[in-house]
Design a protein around this nucleic acid. Sequence first.
DNA 1: AGATATCGCGTTGTACACAAGAACGCCAAG
DNA 2: CTTGGCGTTCTTGTGTACAACGCGATATCT
Lengths: 244, 244
Amino acid sequence: MPEENLLSLNLGALSAAERFEIIHDEIRRRICFLIYPPGSPLSETALASEFGVSRTPIRSVLAQLEAEGLIETHHGAATRVTYIEIQTLRDEYELRMNLAELAGSMGLLPATQNHISDLEDICEELTKFRKNPTSLGYAQINLRFHNVILGRVRNPSLRTLIDRMYFRTSRLWVEKIPHVDWDNEITNFINQVRLMAEMFKTNDDRGSGILQRHIIYTSLLRFVDYGDEEEVAPLKSSYRGSQA
Amino acid sequence: MPEENLLSLNLGALSAAERFEIIHDEIRRRICFLIYPPGSPLSETALASEFGVSRTPIRSVLAQLEAEGLIETHHGAATRVTYIEIQTLRDEYELRMNLAELAGSMGLLPATQNHISDLEDICEELTKFRKNPTSLGYAQINLRFHNVILGRVRNPSLRTLIDRMYFRTSRLWVEKIPHVDWDNEITNFINQVRLMAEMFKTNDDRGSGILQRHIIYTSLLRFVDYGDEEEVAPLKSSYRGSQA
DNA sequence: AGATATCGCGTTGTACACAAGAACGCCAAG
DNA sequence: CTTGGCGTTCTTGTGTACAACGCGATATCT
């Protein structure tokens, strides 16, 4: 259990901000990976005792997560992980797609060897992953890919926005994964990652952005194909790049 | 003093979330209008007694404002309103410009008569304002204009992002205003608002977005013309609209 | 039996006392 | 006079008890 590690780490003379970040990221991770699925209750006292702190810092973390739209608190009633309506989901995916393209258009940080080998690692892991695919494992790989992309976004504020939006929506398709054709899914993803690596090598920023836009679109399609709603109008492409 | 009103309102049986929003918006307003200029200290106990609550809800508001990038807290040292470096400022303006254009491209809510008369009100106020211009008054009118534009952004998440980014940067040019040629400034702004009203009437969403992008660019120019840094490279236009 | 009121329990929000930490002033040494 | 160390005093972070509130079970009335 990773909780024990966290507990001991927290006691180990960390600053308040570091503790906050660790607890925040851990709870966010659990929400993202559906360890806390939508609608499940979060007890402040339980989290407090688990992380070895009082309710106060936990409450501060939960307030932040509420501001990020991941949980909802009601006085007297339990704090719960948020659901999201299909319309909101489409809106947020549309925005994520446009932000991805925008990030490419505004210019990326130069691709380093680290970035490229990270992508190759992901490809390799995906290949091994094919033999024993799980929802959680796939979500973890997806997060790794997201972080690699995120690391190249030049504009700091945009980087934060893209990260926030990722966590607002990413947790939702994880529960759709059981209905997905694994072989097809993994093959597509590998191809996309390989293409992204090529674009990294050639520093094609706008191309990377447009590809990332398409990858997010692919993610959205899971809801269209297998989702609760059968009919989803294709999102119009808001921007068409026309510069060199 | 508006503080007295707030105090009595707070006691008046409001829910926790409402109190939070009132206090948050009030402190944010003071930061935005330079009542709390960058670098000035914020005392939790002072704010607590002013709003008639304990430190706990104040701390929750300040944590939110810190997440929004408006203040900085350090253990032991005073909480202070953040400064912003010129490079960060340029990055955030560039992002704001692109988000404005994006909002138009993604489609606006239909313009109502309310929107248009709001803009006409702003024009009228600007005309009267010409006789006795003040930094605070101009900042207030600018905020009103921002809110009118914001009200037409269709995508809820994008609306929130644009609002956040506005408050991150808007407070900074207010202190530059004393060096501005008022007559020229107001004339330009009136023309821009009138043109925006025309675009509202004809429901030219993309046009509105591009105009808003230009308005933000105009705001950025204040730093270039009168700012600390004499040389600022013109921001490249990331997107060029090419659709109908 | 069904519906409704009421009480108990658990939860979140608030207030306050205390701990941890940093800035400022003071004092002494060089 | 300058400078370095130190302590006071203020700040923010934490823990804890209590208040406000919602939900569910239970009992009672129709």
